[in-house]
């Protein structure tokens, strides 16, 4: 599993395939097509690609108008801009009327790195999970991204798919089939469950390897769909392992951890812990340096899991 590929690269390639299969697909970008990789679609289908310039609010409105006219619309930018810069436009023109718009945002989280806090997207999942009608997906790798983008294209309604800038480890093979709203147990275990999304899934798997040597059987669940959340998988993990650690490259509130905690509190309260971006804005730095600062590493996961084992009593 040493293969690495960025999720945004998988997005660009998948869009081109979709464009060939379905001439109803229209793609928009806000002057970041070289980074989000929508440029691949733009080259292949220039008549169905619209660069809206540096104007995210307007782009979301245009996306809604195209969708209301029967198009399946993909709109892309960096996660920080695709969420904060146009929140109300998405709310009024896309979420409330349940338009068929797929917002695929690259450069999620702090693994954006050196660009610094203006470009770190740490609130986007909270913002998008707050919208009624939206489906929210954070794929764990390039393969899952390709599947999630295809499912989004084939499923009516608004989607937010969050991708990453750096190349990340591939954790799924080609036979993997993504199901919207279904968590995937990546590794069985009975002591503690880690529920993770995005690039943290691979780190959780590394932690599971290390913990196995210490006699701790860690269950690793990939919760790529944050909304609608897979309640059954969460309740099962709470029942069967008795403790849950949520790991995400996002602020601790409003994202994966909050959503899972609500389900656990309601159905099966068990000790929980949360490994997430701490409540401050991060400086520039290399992606791994920043992730390390927030404990978002396999070692950080190991530490939290050991503490949870102690709390199980």
């Amino acid at each position: 599993m040493a293969v690495e590929m960025s999720t945004r690269e998988a997005y660009g390639k998948t869009l081109v395939e979709l464009g060939k299969e379905n001439e109803n697909i229209v793609v928009l970008d806000a002057d970041l097509s070289r980074s989000t990789n929508t440029q691949l679609f733009a080259k292949e289908f220039p008549e169905r690609f619209f660069d809206c310039g540096i104007a995210e609010q307007n782009m979301m409105g245009i996306a809604a108008g195209l969708a209301a006219s029967g198009k399946t619309v993909f709109a892309s930018s960096f996660a920080v801009f695709a969420s904060g810069r146009c929140y109300d436009q998405v709310r009024m023109s896309i979420a409330q009327p349940r338009q068929n718009v797929k917002i695929v945002a690259s450069h999620g989280g702090i693994s954006v790195g050196e660009d610094g806090c203006s470009h770190h997207s740490i609130e986007d999942l909270a913002l998008y999970c707050s919208f009624p009608n939206f489906s929210v997906i954070v794929p764990a790798d390039a393969n899952e991204t390709a599947h999630a983008v295809r499912i989004a294209a084939a499923t009516y309604g608004p989607f937010y798919i969050r991708l990453s800038r750096p190349k990340t480890s591939v954790v799924f093979d080609d036979n993997y089939r993504f199901e919207l709203g279904k968590a995937v147990t990546m590794r069985g275990g009975w002591d503690v469950t880690v529920i993770a999304c995005g690039l943290m899934v691979h780190r959780a798997l590394l932690a599971a390897d290390a913990l196995a040597k210490q006699g701790i059987e860690l269950r690793v669940v990939n919760m790529s769909t944050l909304k609608p959340i897979d309640e059954e998988a969460i309740i099962g993990a709470a029942n069967e392992t008795g403790a849950i650690l949520c790991v995400e490259e996002h602020l601790q509130h409003g994202g994966l951890g909050s959503t899972v905690a609500q389900v656990v509190a309601k159905h099966q309260p068990v000790p929980m812990s949360f490994l997430a971006i701490k409540d401050y804005y991060s400086p520039s730095g290399k992606p791994n340096e920043l992730l390390e600062r927030h404990g978002l590493t396999s070692e950080g996961i190991e530490k939290e899991v050991r503490a949870l084992v102690g709390r199980k009593g």
Binding site: G65, G70, K71
Partner: peptide, 10 residues
């Protein structure tokens, strides 16, 4: 107006 542009392009 943004929405209108989307319809006009469609």
């Amino acid at each position: 107006l943004s929405f209108g542009i989307g319809i006009a392009i469609a």
